[in-house]
Design a protein around this nucleic acid. Structure first.
Length: 311
DNA sequence: ACATAGACCTGTTGGC
DNA sequence: TGCCAACAGGTCTATG
C-alpha cells in the first residue's frame, strides 16, 4: 500500500483531524513489529501535544511538543506493506479495546463497526482533539511496519533517515541531479528507482507507472537512460502528483487495504496504466500494446512493449 | 558496487 | 468445498 502518495494522503487527513491533539494514553498490544518498539515508548508519548504531521519518504512523522527538560521529539511511523492507521471515535474504540483486553471470546465477523477491533491492532493512542476524544490505531497484519522516536534535532542523522535520498516532489530532484545519479549507477532503472538512497518515496507501483509514462523500459541500464533524465523526472513528478490528488491507491478487492485516517480510500488504482494489468491493453491513446509482466529482483514489473521498448 | 535470494510476517486469490 | 501454491504496497542481510 504505502508509497509516497498514500503516506501523504494519510498525513493530510491526520493533520486535519489530529492537528494540535494531545496524547492521553498509549496502549501497546505487541512490541515486536519489524523493529521492537523503543523503551518507555508510551511514557515518552503520553501527555504530549502533537504540533504537526509531516512526511519524509514513506515515513509519517509527528512532531511532539517539548516537555521540559526535554526537547521536541519526532514520532515516526513506517507502514511497511500492510500497515494502516485508523481513527475511531472514542466510544466505539473503547468498546473494541475493552473487548480485546477481555481476552478474545469469539467475536462475530460481520461489519458492525462497534465490534471493529482486530488481532493486528498493535498500538492504540487515545487523543484529545478540538473535536473531542478519539483513538488512533496502528494496524499491521504482516508487521513489516514499525514505529520509532527520535529527538527532532537528530532526525536527519537517525539510522532510518540518514541514507534516504531526495524527495521526489521536492526542489532537490533536478534533471541534472537525476542524470548524474543515473550515470553513476550500474543497475537497471527499476532497481535504481526502488532504491531509497537515490530518490526516497517510490515503490513498486509508482515506479512501474512512472516508467510507463516516461516511455522507458524497467530493465534499461541506468547509464543509457541518463540522457532521458529530464523526461523521467517529469514522469515521476507527474505520476506522484496525480496519485496524491486522487488520494493514493487502495489495492485488493472488496476490502480496501488502504484506509486513510478518516476512513476514506484512494482512487488512483482506477488509473493504473500498467500495474497489475498484464494481458490488458495499454491505455495510451492509439497504442495497441498489451501490458506484460516479468519478475525483476523478485518483484513484479509491468510494462508496455510498444511504449517502453526493450533496452 | 551490484544482483540475487532469502528473510521477516499474514492474508488473499486462483487453479485444480 | 478444500487444499496448495503463488503472490502482495517494503526493507534488510547475506552471499556471490
Amino acid at each position: 500500500m504505502p508509497e509516497l502518495p498514500e503516506v501523504e494522503t494519510i498525513r493530510g487527513a491526520l493533520a486535519e483531524r489530529l492537528g494540535g491533539a494531545r496524547v492521553v494514553q498509549t496502549r501497546l498490544r505487541r512490541r515486536d513489529l519489524r523493529f521492537r518498539l523503543p523503551h518507555n515508548f508510551a511514557a515518552r508519548l503520553n501527555g504530549r501535544r502533537i504540533l504537526g504531521w509531516g512526511r519524509r519518504a514513506k515515513y509519517l512523522t509527528a512532531r511532539l511538543a517539548a516537555r521540559s527538560p526535554w526537547q521536541e521529539d519526532i514520532l515516526f511511523v513506517h507502514l511497511g506493506m500492510s500497515g494502516r492507521l485508523l481513527l475511531r471515535p472514542q466510544r466505539l474504540a473503547k468498546q473494541a479495546a475493552d473487548k480485546h483486553d477481555a481476552i478474545c471470546h469469539e467475536h462475530d465477523k460481520h461489519d458492525d463497526v462497534s465490534h471493529d477491533h482486530d488481532k493486528h491492532d498493535h498500538v492504540a493512542w487515545q487523543m484529545e482533539t478540538r473535536a473531542g476524544p478519539c483513538w488512533l490505531i496502528f494496524r499491521d497484519p504482516r508487521r513489516f511496519g514499525y514505529l520509532g522516536l527520535v529527538a527532532a534535532a537528530e532526525q536527519a542523522a537517525h539510522a532510518r533517515f540518514r541514507a534516504l535520498g531526495v524527495e521526489p516532489l521536492g526542489a532537490d530532484l533536478t534533471a541534472a541531479f537525476l542524470a548524474a545519479r543515473l550515470k553513476g549507477a550500474r543497475t537497471t532503472l527499476k532497481a535504481f528507482l526502488l532504491n531509497q538512497r537515490h530518490i526516497a518515496g517510490l515503490g513498486n507501483i509508482y515506479v512501474c507507472e512512472a516508467l510507463h509514462r516516461a516511455g522507458l523500459h524497467p530493465a534499461q541500464p541506468t547509464r543509457l537512460a541518463a540522457a532521458h533524465a529530464a523526461g523521467l523526472r517529469r514522469a515521476i513528478r507527474h505520476t506522484l502528483r496525480h496519485a496524491v490528488a486522487a488520494g493514493g491507491s487502495s489495492l485488493g478487492r472488496g476490502q480496501s487495504n488502504f484506509v486513510a485516517a478518516s476512513g476514506e480510500m484512494g482512487y488512483f488504482q482506477l488509473r493504473f496504466r500498467v500495474y497489475g494489468r498484464a494481458g490488458r491493453a495499454c491505455r495510451r491513446r492509439a497504442c495497441r500494446g498489451i501490458i506484460r509482466r516479468f519478475s525483476q529482483a523478485g518483484r513484479s514489473s509491468f510494462f508496455c512493449p510498444h511504449c517502453q521498448p526493450a533496452p
